[in-house]
Design a protein around this nucleic acid. Structure first.
Length: 307
DNA sequence: TATCCAAGGTAAGTT
DNA sequence: AACTTACCTTGGATA
């Protein structure tokens, strides 16, 4: 297999774009830096680093695995891929989102504005649903770098290996490939107590019992409820899948960082349980695009070591 | 060098 | 329905 190459002019993207902030902010754990320095540096737009992944078939966009890598230059996003990846990249990196309109739709607030300014150009991602679901099941009580390491290990050990231009690219395992592994196999990859959660959830999807994509089309809170049927998925992980894969931009995952932000900066939003606190902070962050504000705050507070 | 602790939480058991 | 507790593993902090 050989890779074609091309570029998307930045002028064709509405609003700013920052590839590194988009891919190293802890939304997606499915891309890897070709230079092996994921999460290690804070270059402008990722410097000249290539980021690569293998994308599974996506309804209405692609019908086979696509090997793709991208890097950001001054005036464009360069790509190398097994087939024309432009529609796919627009989908995965939400290149059609009008960021300035989204920033403008957020209620004015010093902290949110500081986060928007710090990472201007960061976009939400639209990860493949099954891989996103597994990624965030693995995220429980884990550091960002280790969640990423786990997903890379799952692809290396259990996914389909593609070869292009003499290099290897490992696809994230399909539900069937993952369901075929034992809890023990997964524990060997250091998933710890998450191993049975991943195994059982993969089996549910592989057997057709449920699929994360089936949450789409439901009202936001119903969609979240649907996702919690998967083993290892509570409200927080469900919100992550809704926001980072299924396009529910109003979802605000209440992780440890946003919880402390609520305590320190939005105490009036602190309610008795997840559902009520979620409603309050979602309203406070402007509703429709509240998840954008959440993701900027998460990255900003975590990078600042604000504990 | 040894020990402690928290990391993008969830499930299961109690009250 | 609200509140506790156990759970794998590891890198960084503290002694």
């Amino acid at each position: 297999m050989t890779l074609e190459s091309g570029a998307i002019p930045l002028s064709e993207i509405p609003g700013p774009f920052d590839l590194q902030a988009t891919l190293e902010s802890g939304q997606s754990y499915l891309w890897d830096r070709a230079d092996g320095r994921m999460y290690e540096s804070m270059d402008v737009h990722g410097g000249d680093a290539w980021y690569q992944t293998v994308v599974p078939p996506i309804d209405g966009v692609t019908d086979e695995d696509v090997v793709v890598r991208v890097r950001q230059r001054d005036d464009s996003v360069e790509w190398e891929a097994s087939t024309d990846p432009v529609p796919l990249l627009r989908h995965l990196l939400r290149l059609d989102d009008d960021l300035d309109a989204i920033y403008a739709a957020t209620p004015d607030d010093d902290l949110v504005r500081a986060a928007y300014d710090a990472y201007r150009g960061m976009r939400l991602v639209r990860d493949p649903p099954f891989a996103c679901l597994v990624s965030f099941i693995c995220s429980a009580q884990m550091r960002v770098a280790r969640i990423h390491r786990m997903q890379m290990a799952l692809a290396r050990e259990f996914g389909t290996r593609h070869e292009a231009d003499g290099e290897q690219f490992d696809a994230f395992p399909t539900p069937a490939q993952l369901a075929a592994q034992s809890e023990e196999d997964l524990r060997e990859l250091k998933l710890g107590y998450r191993a049975p959660y991943v195994q059982r959830t993969a089996a549910m999807v592989a057997e057709g019992e449920a699929h994360p994509s089936e949450a789409v089309g439901r009202d936001y809170e119903d969609a979240r409820e649907y996702l919690t049927q998967f083993v290892g998925v509570g409200d927080k992980v469900a919100d992550c899948v809704l926001l980072f894969s299924l396009g529910y931009l109003e979802a605000v995952p209440l992780d440890t960082w946003i919880q402390s932000a609520i305590a320190d900066y939005f105490p009036e939003c602190d309610r008795s349980n997840y559902t009520e606190t979620s409603r309050a902070i979602r309203e406070r962050l402007g509703g429709e695009y509240a998840g954008y504000a959440q993701t900027y705050l998460f990255y900003y507070l975590r990078a600042r070591g604000d504990d």
